[in-house]
Design a protein around this nucleic acid. Structure first.
Length: 427
RNA sequence: GGGGGGGUACCGAAGCGGUCAAACGGGACAGACUGUAAAUCUGUUGGCUCUGCCUUCGCAGGUUCGAAUCCUGCUCCCCCCA
């Protein structure tokens, strides 16, 4: 078996393990089954799930079998770890839809059809729903001394806070611990991985395995992927970066990574890509020497977009990037433009507006919402910040006519560096 | 309940009868520069049919040729005394 442990170590992906001295040999001496949990709070994963997902992928490529578990049952309850308040509970139907969406995305990263190492996706609700409350208390609950539960950080911090901790949340750890036991029984799963904030839940599962099954189970946590300023990776002012193309277009996804700070990019390369040590060290060196070329960011964006959105998604993102950053827009087809400007606000006008006098540029800017008043629009034009099809236009009296069409029916307006609006002319 | 102070544009804050669409600072937006960065510099920052016109200074009235500025009532906020 390949030595995955030292690769993980080199990448800085190992935060804590339950058996530092034993784990490397254990992993090398046979194909193991391991699992990680994912949050089913939305119908798509976001960038925050990329790290554990890549971890599973690394293990799979090293000859092990990954299990991704979505918390259908635990998702209805909410993990108190690292949360400052109790979360809203999800309905069963919503959960089902979310799980379906998440599975589709996992297929890009994990191989679900490769014999013994095929990835498995399970929903803990499938076994939890059969459990009666009293059975659960008898079989599982009695193995949890309250004194131990109270020492967990996730519990301690919430007990001291204003929000408090409900009994439901307090029980979360039992459910997650039981997942591990169940997966061991059903799949022979012996290793749980997760973020460093999951340590308490991971060790709870290991304890339960020892008590219920007399089994030696293992745990490993990774550092959380945070930015150098302490903020979480994957959040922007406009919200989270999602893996689904419907929620975050491939272009936006690509852009997010291209814009990662110099201080964070090396970590991202190590944590989230499969580039070799050599390639990463070379990129680090290149960045030292010529940060402005941003090779690291480009490589990172390219790798991740390719993995999540495929070659077509990457091509689309690159083409959109070229256009969004200045390339003149002309002689294109409607279909191309729609792909590139899919997530840009657009407004429709009757085709005959382009005939005769044409449509005033000022009016068009206001109609698209690119400017909120004519006075503003006028000012922006005077300041040279208005572009028609990416060609600067500082003519206050300009009127859009058929000659301005970038494709069959479309004109693209831009205000400032990157605010775009699409004008569609229809019959 | 008694006394005092105050509500100004996105925010903070000047203005206290005409020259006020309202100083100044922050923010925001734009331009130059740049690495799709930071810093810096410059411009803009109520609306419009834009060298002019219209609507804004807690709300409603009033005085005046003229009010953000003076008077009356209302309302909200802050401070002190009881």
């Amino acid at each position: 078996m390949p030595d995955i442990f030292s690769d993980l170590q080199w990448r800085g992906l190992i935060h804590q393990t339950t058996a530092d001295d034993h784990l490397p040999q254990w992993l090398e001496s046979g194909s193991r089954t391991l699992y990680a949990g994912f949050d089913p709070t939305a119908d798509s994963l976001h960038v925050g799930s990329l790290l554990p997902l890549m971890m599973l992928r690394r293990f799979q490529k090293a000859g092990h079998r990954p299990i991704a578990i979505v918390g259908g049952a635990t998702g209805m309850i909410g993990d108190p770890s690292g949360k400052s308040a109790e979360r809203n509970l999800l309905s069963a139907e919503a959960l089902q839809a979310n799980i379906a969406g998440i599975e589709a995305q996992m297929r890009h990263v994990l191989d679900f059809d490769c014999g013994d190492q095929s990835a498995v996706l399970v929903n803990n609700n499938d076994w939890m729903k059969e459990f009666s409350y009293t059975d659960f208390l008898r079989d599982v609950g009695k193995n949890f001394p309250i004194s131990v539960m109270l020492t967990k950080d996730s519990v301690k911090s919430r007990l001291g806070s204003e929000a408090g901790l409900s009994y439901t949340e307090f029980s979360y750890m039992l459910l997650q611990a039981y997942d591990f036991v169940h997966l061991n029984k059903q799949f022979g799963c012996e290793l749980q991985i997760g973020g460093s904030d999951q340590w308490g839940n991971v060790t709870a599962g290991i304890d339960l395995g020892r008590r219920m099954l007399s089994q030696q189970l293992y745990g490993m946590t990774c550092p959380l992927l945070t930015k150098s300023d302490g903020a979480k990776m994957g959040k922007t002012e406009s919200g989270a970066i999602w893996l689904s193309a419907e929620r975050t277009s491939p272009y936006q996804f690509y852009q997010y990574w291209v814009n990662v700070d110099d201080a964070d990019v090396s970590k991202c390369l190590r944590f989230l890509t499969e580039l070799s040590h050599k390639e990463i060290t070379a990129l680090d060196a290149a960045r030292e020497a010529a940060a402005h070329q941003r090779e690291s960011q480009k490589k990172l964006a390219e790798q991740l977009t390719l993995l999540i959105h495929g070659q077509a998604g990457l091509d689309q993102a690159m083409r959109a990037t070229e256009i969004f950053f200045g390339a003149e827009i002309e002689n294109l087809k409607d279909a191309d433009l729609m792909q590139i400007f899919g997530d840009v606000p657009n407004s429709s006008f009757p085709m005959d507006q382009l005939g005769g006098e044409g449509l005033g540029l000022i009016d068009a800017l206001v109609a698209t919402g690119l400017q909120n008043s004519k006075g503003n629009a006028r000012r922006m034009i005077e300041q040279g910040s208005i572009y028609v099809n990416n060609r600067r236009n500082d003519n206050l009296n300009h009127r859009l006519t058929a000659a301005d069409l970038a494709s069959e029916t479309t004109i693209v307006l831009r205000s400032g560096k990157k605010k775009y609006a699409v004008l569609k002319f229809t019959d």
